[in-house]
Nucleic acid binder design. Structure first.
Lengths: 349, 349
DNA sequence: TTGTATGCGTTATCAC
DNA sequence: GTGATAACGCATACAA
């Protein structure tokens, strides 16, 4: 009445076969089964064979809970995303996924959908699941402050898309100011100098940073910006309105280049220019976007843009996380990722 | 040397406080702690207080693995998505999330990214995690067949976006043919009768179904379709090309309405009509899309479209899943969700 | 209302 | 190379 007693080998009482069922069917001990699962090298080839046959006969699926309980660690890491609707975050997930895969880990993803309360819930869930660690993407100063207040112990947290104080967390983020500089410089390099920046709500930190890059680049060349616009949003329709407003000034030659804070914005602007006013893009005016979204390449006139390496961000995040785990006393680090210029038709020459 | 021996109350050996630490700090037994976690109603208010104080003092976080092992069930469900890049799947995730939340469950999301092998891996992962069940979105007959072959036991699987054989799985899916009918009828209702269908690769089952709806609606009215086109893709650039090809026939009056198989397609068509040929939309020609994507509303001329209730699909999926779990002998069901017409400018009159 | 004892399914340690 | 046995941290009868 101790170890492997009479449990019908096959579909057991609970509906799921356990390691004991496999063991008795294969005529070995539980430890041997466990060994073929976790340390094949310690097991004879022929034994492996028998056990594996038994496993598939029974449709045995190891119980992850028991597994990580006994092992004291799990083989997965969590990722809490701010917004699945934004393709940038999807890219981040892809990169994280790839990194996890390379380390033989699984990635569990949860969507906070911009809600602070959900963010919390999922961080807690992952913590309780005893994932190796959790990656958290952040938009917002608000959320960051809430986070600092909350208990951060219990799990290793790494912040993504946000430049955190290295005293508290590891983080990986994009250099938006550099992106603004890249875009502006590209317009200068292609012979334009009468430039306007089209931004958006100033509350968006990335947009503000991009504008800063615009300003600095022009200042460094001793050029004065023609104008800076801040539509209500950064979508295509907003760009379309701005484009129409700008068209006359392009025709007069006052403007020959537009730096837009998003691809959607840029696509709307290009559309407005070409459709009603017959303004040639890129001949008369160059337009550059930001994000390297579908809007940028899936457009009649493909739009030059700044690409943010979302996948790399996710990849780097996993790296930071694992690093944090390994080294006992670990200095938190902030990794800044540089955007890059993607040249397409809208600025061609 | 039996139950609560000497483990330094506070940060324990492993770095994490356990339920035993909480119990001894609060001066109660482990089961009492467990009860305040799971059955508060059985515990005296004052005891709850003491225990909770101890919990927060120690920063105690229950171990999910141990928890679901002991309880025999977890509190989360899995969702494997075909393609996070498609906003429809994001909507599905949102709906599933809402349903899960309402049931006090957590939703774990994984992105298969269109790869069959990943689909498998994640279904397996969720199965090992002993989630309550797994939701799986499917595009493709191929994947479905692979699925039927594979072991499907071990976890409850519910299929989304795919009409599965009710003998094997529960499933929830969209009625694409009805959508095609809706779109076509709307064009007829607004006084157009010289209609063309713009589809895409015939391998896409949904597109084929939508075309079928187009055909049947016209047949029912005794009208002959003017034409059916199948561009290489269903993106904006494809639409733009088709639009230019169609423009002349619109000008001659041969065509007064276009049913497009996607919003991107429709947006490209509208753009081509208005920009170069000056063809008035909706005055000269009505255009309707499909999907209710951002492309449909975030366009200078907002595009009428067919909306698929992605969130509802996810919501319904969770319902089916939980149903399947509860009822011992459960008849698998296939739930069909109806799309709806969204009228915007591109068909207005 | 609270405490005691047993088991969840697996891994790891140690003998053999 | 293989097998016995003790944890892993918690939930849940059941007894008190």
């Amino acid at each position: 009445m101790s170890s492997g007693d009479q449990r019908a080998p096959g579909a057991s009482s609970t509906g799921t076969a356990g390691i004991a069922d496999v063991a008795s069917l294969a005529g070995v001990s539980q430890s041997t089964v466990s060994n073929v699962l976790n340390h094949r090298e310690r097991v004879a080839a022929e034994t492996i064979d028998r056990v594996e046959r038994a496993i598939s006969m029974l449709g045995y699926v190891p119980n992850g809970a028991a597994r990580s309980l006994a092992a004291g660690r799990s083989r997965s890491i969590g990722l809490v995303l701010s917004d699945l609707g934004n393709s940038l975050f999807v890219d981040i997930a892809r990169g994280a996924e790839r990194a996890a895969e390379e380390h033989g880990l699984s990635l569990l993803v949860a969507n906070a959908d911009g809600r602070l309360e959900r963010e919390d819930r999922y961080v807690d869930l992952f913590t309780e699941s005893r994932v190796l660690g959790t990656l958290l993407t952040l938009n917002d100063e608000t959320h960051y402050r809430a986070l600092s207040t909350r208990r951060a112990r219990g799990t290793v947290l790494t912040l993504l898309n946000f430049h955190a104080d290295a005293a508290a967390f590891c983080s990986a983020y994009f250099d938006n100011e550099a992106g603004g500089r890249l875009a502006t410089q590209h317009l200068l390099d292609t012979g334009r100098s009468r430039l306007v920046f089209v931004g958006g709500p100033s509350a968006l930190q990335p947009v503000a940073d991009r504008r800063e890059g615009f300003r600095r680049t022009l200042a460094a060349s001793g050029i004065r910006p023609v104008d800076e616009l801040s539509p209500d949003g950064i979508n295509r329709a907003d760009g379309w309105k701005v484009g129409h407003a700008l068209a006359a000034r392009v025709v007069t030659g006052e403007i020959d280049g537009v730096v837009a804070a998003s691809d959607l914005l840029a696509a709307g602007i290009v559309q407005a220019f070409t459709e009603s006013s017959g303004i040639g893009v890129p001949d008369i005016v160059g337009v550059i976007g930001y994000d390297n979204n579908q809007a940028a390449w899936d457009s009649p006139i493909q739009i030059s843009t700044i690409s943010q390496p979302g996948a790399e961000l996710g990849y780097a995040g996993v790296g930071l996380l694992l690093d944090d785990l390994d080294s006992g006393e670990h200095e938190h680090r902030a990794v800044r990722l540089e955007p890059s210029l993607v040249i397409r038709q809208s600025t061609g020459r």
